[in-house]
Amino acid sequence: MKTRAMLRLAALLGLGAAVAGCSNDPYFTNPVTNIYSLMFSGDKAPSAVTQQQILQTLSATELPVAFFNVDERNSQTLLIQIEENGPYKTFATVTRQSIVMNHGMITGTRGLGGDLMSTEEEALLDTVRARRTGQVSYVQRFLTSEGVTETVTYRCGVEPDKPVEVAMGRIRTNGQEMIAACESPDGPPFVDYYVVDAGGEILASRQWLGGLTGYVAMHMLQR
């Protein structure tokens, strides 16, 4: 009887080890942790960027730096430019989340969850950069949970608002606030704000990046 109990204990310990799951395979995923994370994954803790971090980052790099705030997730982060492709500039965090911007307009995100995959932004961008009033079309593309591309085509009304002073990080200049109010039969409506400098660069914005991410605020801190 005693040996039986011992065996049972050993077996339970074995199961314990197995539940923990182990392998020498770097790509091994334990099905139990998977189910656990499915059932008990909580919201991520809010993250805030401090003044100190901003100063440190700006003094450590000559590369363009941008600040992002995702309202919905209460998360703030600093991104540094790591690559450019024509007018598109890729900014990234050390944890490999990235944001692509065309003259400061966000055209893609990666690693945020619910990522904006790409946009057709030329008409909107031209109008915003030229600080003009106009009606333009604008397209956002996302992946669905199924893994299929979902295209949302918007009609946007763009108009200038008031002039503003920009004083963020190393950037000190005057800009013009632009408003774009967009509607679509296929997706929720949104209103974007852009602060554009005299050269047509967007220095700050509050931009809609889709249902999961919601609005994101961006500020260039160094360029």
């Binding site: 790591i82 890729t90 992946l143």
Partner: peptide
């Protein structure tokens, strides 16, 4: 609904950008 289960597009980190 299998079509709406999970985070749209996934939570994995970004791939590398193209180097032109």
């Amino acid at each position: 609904n299998p079509k709406t289960q999970g985070t749209p597009g996934g939570n994995e980190s970004a791939g590398l950008p193209v180097k032109v």
